[in-house]
Amino acid sequence: MSTAVLLIDLQHDFLSPDGAYGRAGLGNADLAALPARVAPVLDAARAAAVPIVSAQFTIVARRGRPPQIAEHLHALRPFLGPGDFEPGRRGHDLVDALAPADVVVEKVAFSAFHQSRLEWVLQGLGADHLLVAGIVTNGGVASTVRDAHVRGLATTLLADGCAAFDREAHDATLRSLRGVTRLSTCAGAIGELAAGA
């Protein structure tokens, strides 16, 4: 198997205090701890020449019109507005502790595969196994892992490399995903990367 690391939505607008979610008062200690926990995994991946792909939630800006936000998302997160999750702005970027990724893929839905170039990128990398970390466990992470499974890609989900806005939702999602992914930890991934797995 050829491995790539896949990061889901670990962006300033989700995680930084001055990002869109931080300004709205949304976040928790589990989410805030992720960059420091995931960074050593990326260090090990870089040392092993394993590519890092960052799938980043994107809101499409439209000149002279409001940004293009899915109706259900706008209803759930009415605070999102112009400039939030917009490519070229800091909020859209991968958080500093994890940057840079080798490839950035814009995502517009929960799954990083939906209407994106992720599958094409992974084919180009020759990757058939993904080490997955990101947010939120019960949203973008779960949807992406399930879509990878449908596409015949093996995945290892880093249980402590993911988080949600609700710990119970995180734990329940990990239990529900056992049929489609292998669960591991950041420490386990570092060991496997160092061993050339």
Rank of each mutant, 00 (worst) to 15 (best):
T58I: 10
E119G: 12
R89S: 08
G126T: 06
V103G: 06
H170P: 03
A159M: 13
E86W: 05
V150L: 13
A47D: 13
Q115I: 08
E168R: 15
A4C: 11
D9W: 02
S2P: 04
C186P: 04
V95A: 06
S116N: 04
D13V: 02
A39C: 03
A55Y: 00
H149Y: 15
A172M: 14
A197I: 08
T181F: 06
I69C: 11
W120A: 12
L73W: 14
A164H: 02
P78W: 08
D18E: 15
A164P: 02
A127K: 05
L193C: 02
G22N: 04
A29Y: 07
A70T: 07
T137P: 01
A33W: 10
N138I: 03
G191F: 06
V104T: 15
G27I: 12
F79M: 12
G19C: 10
P40A: 07
G25W: 00
D96S: 14
A99M: 06
H149P: 04
L122W: 01
S143W: 01
L125H: 01
P40I: 14
F113E: 00
Q56W: 09
R117L: 11
V104R: 04
S16P: 03
R182A: 15
A70N: 12
S116G: 04
A45D: 12
A29N: 10
G191E: 15
T58D: 07
V5W: 01
Q68I: 06
G19P: 13
G161K: 07
P100Q: 11
I8D: 00
L94R: 02
D43C: 03
V5C: 04
L122Q: 05
G19V: 12
A112L: 02
I8E: 01
L76T: 12
A109E: 13
A36D: 14
G88H: 09
A194L: 10
R146M: 08
A45W: 10
V53A: 13
R62E: 15
V105D: 10
L15V: 09
G124Y: 10
L153A: 05
L42P: 02
K107E: 00
H170V: 11
A97R: 12
G124M: 10
Q123R: 15
H114G: 04
A194K: 09
L193S: 01
